[in-house]
Amino acid sequence: MVTRLIDRSVTAFAWLSGLVLTASVVGLMGYVLIKGMGSLSPRLFFGNTAPLDALLLRRQVFDGIFPATVGTLTLVGLAIFIAMPIGIAAGIYMAEFATPRIQSVFGLFFDILAGIPSILVGLFGFSVALFFHHRVSDRIAPCLLISALSLAFLVLPYLIRTTQTALENLPRHVRVTAPALGASRLQTIIYVLLPQALSGIVSGVILSVGRCAEDTAVIMLTGVVATAGLPSSLLSSYEALPFFIYTISAQYADQAELMRGYGAAIVLLAVCALLFTLATLIRHRLADHLFYGTR
């Protein structure tokens, strides 16, 4: 009798937990979607400026999220451009060349880098900018380049880990194919291991893109501002979507600005959802590949 009671209550609790979680997420996101749906239009991006003029950079956009969107795209592009080669190279090193000792020591550092609060990475970027400002040139201040570098540091451990795991998870029979045919270690990596691990690595890169796009803490210390227009150079300040959402939530002048905030939140959510789906699809293809492919 007692057993049945425990059985029932534990099961009920589990279902209740699922319900609570689903309700919170659907509630929070649904609220943003419903409130903000009405603001989704070209006007959200371009305000009163003609879209074509804005896209061709003929006129500046003042009351739309176009500059913030362009800022985010530039920022993410730069950060991934910096982080990808280093991250993937370090991942390959960890999986294929490092001794077990190095693997564990370096792995500890990468875990710490992945674990430290992103605001500390931002603080680091800010301090570096300050350092160079005093020691090298007073033209250097928090800017697009510093932000991109800091974001690159932020996603570096993810890139290293996903590359390393994708390579290490390759089954042994795939791993020995090329050496048995006389391939050197480098040839094995280039011709067999990397192609087979590609989908895992690519989905890691896409998830890193999402991480860069959504991060706010790092950029708010390293050069993002509320109004800057389009970024003019690597050393200029810039606008970004997540920071735009943050500022609107803290202080909005009128209803129209608040609605732009909702709109921007939906845009950012959609971008991240898209990237996430893409990464999942690619990873599933990887699973298929390994499962049906090489048997």
């Binding site: 029979h173 194919t177 006389g182 067999v192 087979q196 090489t294």
Partner: peptide
């Protein structure tokens, strides 16, 4: 060495 001593495994392992 591995070019002069070929090996074939238990499960066929053609490359993709």
């Amino acid at each position: 060495l591995r070019r002069s001593v070929g090996m074939v495994f238990q499960t066929p392992n053609p490359l993709p």
